[in-house]
Amino acid sequence: MSHSATQPPRRSKTYREGLTPWLFLAPGLLMFIIYVLLPIFQSIWISFHDWDGLGEKVWIGLGNYRELLDDDSFYVSLKNNVIWLLLYLLAIPAGLAVALFLNQTVTGIRLYKSLFFFPFVISQVVVGLIFTWFYAPDFGLFSKLFEWLTGQQLAVLADERYVTYGIIVAGLWPQTAYCMILYLTGLNNINPEQVEAARMDGAKRFKLLWYVVLPQLAPATFIAMVVTVIGSLRSFDLVSIMTAGGPYGSSQVLSYFMFEQALSEYGFRMGYGAAIAVVLFLIMMVFISLFIVRMLIQERNA
């Protein structure tokens, strides 16, 4: 009898600590499994096949990867991805600079802030179009300016030497705004007493920024870093809108290369596209793991 009397509370305890969290997690977890985890494994599975999306899948093992290593376009894309990754990071100091500049109380500062934030609000497609016109030979603002200054014409988007940089500049415009807003919120949370104290101790300008303000902005910097790195690896829309990978494939990045091989009008090589996706995934995984490890360490310390 005593046996049955002790049972209900124990059951409710296991219920609370065992099943309940899972029940609450279930909807999200289900979505995550269906829309994120399963497709990852499916992609990896497809990358071992030769498949046009219609007929039978043919198992070719590592064939796609072997071909990838022998494909010039792959190296061009990889190189461009590295350039993107490095130069895109400029958005962080640029965003910080704009945020520091805007972090003051002047009449109409809200308007200025919104104007600076504007490029992030508009779609990447619109940004791409604006910059395409900006660079357009004959009538673009940039081309006109360049011609006036040097007497020569420069079609940025048609020149394999400059095209990637031209697109990155377009990408930096909204990304800077994004970093700016992250830093502006960070600056709001700065402890004024610490700044005051530092001032009294005679810290000025750069020293004040470097030793007092920046450490307090570390969380904002971390988030800005994460979104910028991942944003640079996903750079797809701008490339697609501004050049479609051209001229002759010289502004390709991995994400666009994958799309072109697997899904575009001239593609439908699902296996090859999946192999590119897997490579991109592995590269991203390096960064994502670094960030996650850092985050876990921080949480443990806190």
Binding site: P137, D138, A158, P247, Y248
Partner: peptide, 11 residues
Amino acid sequence: IENHAAIDWQD
């Protein structure tokens, strides 16, 4: 024409 790689057929 120069810079043909930068423009579409309509342009």
